[in-house]
Design a protein around this nucleic acid. Sequence first.
DNA 1: CGTCATTTTGAGGTATTTCAACGAAGGTGG
DNA 2: CCACCTTCGTTGAAATACCTCAAAATGACG
Lengths: 233, 233
Amino acid sequence: MGLSMLGIPFVANAISGTGMTRLLTDKQRHELESLSTRSDVPPRRVVYREGTESTSIFICRKGAFKAFRDLPSGTRRVASFLFPGDVFGLAENGRYVNTVQAITDGRYNRIPLDSLTAVLRHDAELQFVFLLKVTHALRESQRRAILLGRRSATGRIAMFLKMLQRTIAASPSVDVIPVPMSRADIANYVGLSAEAISRATAQLTREGIIKFQGLHTVRIVDRHRFRSLAADI
Amino acid sequence: MGLSMLGIPFVANAISGTGMTRLLTDKQRHELESLSTRSDVPPRRVVYREGTESTSIFICRKGAFKAFRDLPSGTRRVASFLFPGDVFGLAENGRYVNTVQAITDGRYNRIPLDSLTAVLRHDAELQFVFLLKVTHALRESQRRAILLGRRSATGRIAMFLKMLQRTIAASPSVDVIPVPMSRADIANYVGLSAEAISRATAQLTREGIIKFQGLHTVRIVDRHRFRSLAADI
DNA sequence: CGTCATTTTGAGGTATTTCAACGAAGGTGG
DNA sequence: CCACCTTCGTTGAAATACCTCAAAATGACG
């Protein structure tokens, strides 16, 4: 499948939650800053469209974004959600693979590809940070594949929430998880219908495992059962 | 989701089918060779096990391998199939994420992580090749996620075969595709039961879209209908 | 050539999808 | 600031497709 995999384990974990600037020296951060332009955008603003010529890569700085593709059949597949520190701009044959759109108010940096590659080609340390970033993304993508392999809707949702928890929540043990995206976005990410999302969250709530406080915040009520549900069954 | 994405488009395509040695200078190839040890293995040989301390990364040279994880519930999820040129050894927190096992007779190179990272940290060009590799793997992983999003078994199988075609077949237009892995492996990769695989391939055969010549070779009979089935619906 | 694993086929059960309608929420303009 | 409108989320009922369990057939291997 060409699904090759590279493992550079030791630093990879340190980078995940914190964003990448932590790993950079002052000089490198300056170098990146000088190459990039910053943008603040309102919800629903499209950063780039699938199929467009890829000229830059981006770093999420604030808020949440979604990367998705509209398939010929009309269905929409959300490939990933982006949070602060995440790099986005995946391309193939010179064109962006997905459309990226802001979910909340957001901020991102744009770095032109040509200047970035020029820098990466002579600054191995800086490139290494990007290598770690992509490796991390690959792991997440595999985790999502496991999520998609589960058959029960409640299981998928529990696992989805767990992924959100690890990504967004400052500490992974915090049991209040922000859920900025819509139900439809969740459905398009976990591979279920919006109705199934609704029913499954209702069931989890009925069973006393989670509780929504408004549409965009969950609280894990029964941590034990949640864990066993969200385990990589 | 931390599913960040990096796009370095222009060279990425050149690398995909050919293996990476094409992109390396003689000196770099020598450098890598001097770091690596070669192994020839029979079918079913395990290269490394999930959870084991990660000490090396690997490059597939010959044959086919599978990377999988056995989940607590007893189900097995195949994360990816590896073919010549693919890099494998994905790790997290210093431990391999998957178990990798040979499907056919195979050959691979093993490169110790410490010496590899040492080289990558001062050879930006060589590291760039690895960056492209991982980026390619990320694209493939997203493609698989799209596959998993399809509901019909025949659609998943058509898409799976198409991925095989692009990866294995020398030219993507060749309509005879080797299928080295077992039906159970396919099932664990596309997220269906082995029975469903059987029934779906039977249906595709009945409809005159594909034809198996033995268990490990398919021929695309009706190229047109196959394409529309395998499209990223 | 015989044994064992893999694959195929059959029948019933179950979960999600779909289609449809209702209710809630958010945004806009008066 | 309120009312309307549009979008989003929830709930209900029937249909479809896959899963599971079980058994037969085929293929692989010594």
